[in-house]
Structure formats: structure tokens, C-alpha cells
Amino acid sequence: MRFQTASAVNIAAALVMAFAVGTALMWISGYDPLSSYSAMLITPLSDWVYFLSALAFSAPMALTGLTFSLGLRAGLFNIGAEGQVYMGALGAVAAAYLLGGPAVLPLAFAMGLILAVLWSSVPAVLKIWRGVNEVISTIMMNWVAYWVTIMAVSTAFANPLQPEESVKVPEPARLTPLVPGTDFTAAVPIAYAAAFLVLIFLKYSVWGYRISVSGYNPIAAKSYGIKPERAVLVAFALGSVTAGLAGVLQVVARPPSYSLARNLANVYGLGFDGITAAMLGRGHPVGVVLASIFLGIMQEGARHMQIEAGTPYEFVKVIQGLIILFLALQLLRK
């Protein structure tokens, strides 16, 4: 109970400091912090359409947050979710290019998840085989994934009718809004269900126990007959599944385009947003979901902040960066 209270206090302190610095930056820049924060945090809760849109924003962040959390549980600092999101989205686009009709949907999930897992296997093998730091390898893989996806969307999978995006998922294969007039699709319950399954996996499965023990103390894990290398491999693979799922859902379940933007605007940064969600949620699947909802409210609120207060959208990203900074400083202090 003391640990949970301390964690809640630390999170609250990081949020207060991040918003305080954000207030100063807004004021220096000539914007009104009070009206900006009101539009950012209150307006999305004032209308159910806005709130459902915030939940839609939260879904991919919850999934990439799970990727980072699984890495932390195994003693890894896995920031490869960004590249794996690109691969998941690329797999969905490739499926739309290859097939038509409802058959695209299962193929999109299969291809997207397989590509994401294969992409994560490179840093995983490098970590196990040669001891390569996963931060370095995943950053490099993120950039390779970015440019590979850009090239694919610009050439082979380009939409001849709309060159600014990829080929579209055919209508019969789209996960359309569950509530008409909103962005709330099946992606939201799928993301939250994934978090529940990860929770069950970590808490009750043998491999969940092995991952936790290996991450906490690899030497002790070996004394119990657990091979930390295998735990690392499983954590990478399972994390890539959730990240790849985020990429697939951004293509098959994100109106109105149901495609991948040529500049990857609809998937760019989701992996890094997941790090914020994971750190705010203290790496716990339930905490990650709650944190992603909070970040989704901020993301939806950014649009209202720009319209109502004239404050640039980018200030939300500034505050998210400050949240990570202050949470990281608390970890260094320990």
C-alpha cells in the first residue's frame, strides 16, 4: 500500500511540475494558460462525441504502452514500438493491395503482426547473441522501418487516385465507427482487451512469471532454472504483437481514410506516446490504459485548444515530454 501511495504521489508530482512548466512556457510565448488548459482538459469531457474521440486516440497509445511495459518487466528499455507500428500498418496496407473484399481484414491482421514480430526479432537476437544494447538497436530499427514504409507507400502501395496516401482498405473489410458520427471503432475495445490479456499473462502464466523474475534479477532466475535469454525473446515478441496491432488498427479501424498517409502522419509518434503512457501507468497494464485515456483526452483537447485559445497544437507534445522528463528524474533519484 505504501508503494502504491508513493507511486501515486510521484505521478501527481510529475504532472503538476509538467503543467507548471507548461504554464510558464505558454505565458512567455504570449498564450493564455488558463483558457488553453480548459480547452485541453475540460472541453473533451463536455461532450460525449469529444470523449469518444479521446478514447479513439487512447487505443494505439495503450497498445504501444504495453510494448514498453513488457520490455520493462523483462529488464529491457525497448523503444522499438515505433518501428513495429509502422510494420503493422505496412502489413495492413499490403493486404489491401493484394486482396479485395472482407478477406482483407484477417490478412491485414496476419501480415501486420507477422511483420512486427519479425522486425522485433532483430534487436532481440542481437541482444541475446551479441549483447547489443536494445536502446541503440531499436532506435536504428525504427528509422529503417520509417524509410522502408515511406518508400513502400510512395511506390508499390501508392493510391493512384490520391497520391498523398496508400491504397485504401476496401469498405467490406473496414472496422467502422460503433457510434455513428464519432471515431469510436472496435479498435478501442480491442486495445483494452489486449491490456487485460497482458495482465492475465503476466500475473498467472508461467512465462509471465519467468519474464518478471528475469527482469528483476537474471542471476536469481538462472538459479531457479529460468533462462533469461528466452524471457527476453518472449517479451520482445509479445510486445511487438501489441505494437503491430496498433499499426494494423490505425489502417483498418481509423476513419475517415482507412489508409496509411504518405508521410505516415496517422502512425508517426505512436510508439513514443506509448512510452509516456507506460511511465505514467507505472508499467501496469491497467495503469497503462488509464494513462492512455488521460493522454487521449489531451490529444483530443489539443484540437480544441488550437481553435478556442489559439494555442499551438504542439504544446501538448511539450507537456508530454515534460511528463517523461520529470518521471525519469524521479527514477534517477532512486
Rank of each mutant, 00 (worst) to 15 (best):
M17A: 15
T182M: 08
Y50C: 03
E229I: 01
G208A: 04
L331H: 11
Y268A: 15
P160C: 10
G271D: 09
Q250E: 13
I200L: 15
I79W: 00
L34C: 12
F184H: 03
L332W: 13
V198A: 10
A92Q: 08
L233R: 01
P106I: 03
K127F: 03
V288P: 03
W27H: 12
I79V: 11
P170K: 09
V93L: 07
Y146I: 02
T242A: 10
P189T: 06
S166F: 03
G75A: 08
F19T: 14
A253N: 02
Y313L: 13
G22L: 03
V241G: 05
V132C: 09
E229A: 14
G131Q: 08
G215E: 08
G181V: 05
D32C: 10
A193N: 05
Y209M: 13
L295M: 15
I42N: 08
L322Y: 02
L25S: 04
A20R: 00
A59M: 07
I28P: 04
F77M: 13
G321P: 02
L90D: 04
F201L: 14
L15P: 00
A186I: 01
G30E: 06
M111D: 08
F184Y: 10
L34G: 11
F236E: 08
G321L: 04
L202M: 14
A195P: 01
G88Y: 02
K317F: 11
V206C: 01
G281E: 06
Y146K: 10
F236L: 08
A96N: 02
A108Q: 10
R73T: 12
V213I: 14
T311S: 09
L70F: 08
V179P: 06
T138E: 10
T242C: 09
Y268I: 12
K168S: 15
V241Y: 05
A231G: 08
P255Y: 02
R262S: 13
L113I: 15
V289H: 05
E308V: 14
F77R: 07
S35F: 06
L99C: 12
K227W: 03
I319S: 03
V169H: 00
A186E: 00
G301M: 03
A186F: 04
Q299I: 05
A8G: 14
M111F: 14
S240G: 02
L52H: 01
L238P: 01
D47M: 06
K334Y: 06
V286P: 05
E82I: 11
A302R: 02
F3M: 10
H284G: 11
R262H: 05
Q299N: 15
G88M: 06
W119A: 13
A328I: 05
V188T: 01
T5Q: 08
V9E: 11
D47A: 10
K222W: 00
A12M: 12
V144Y: 04
A309Y: 05
P33R: 00
L238N: 03
G283A: 04
L66C: 07
F77H: 12
I11P: 02
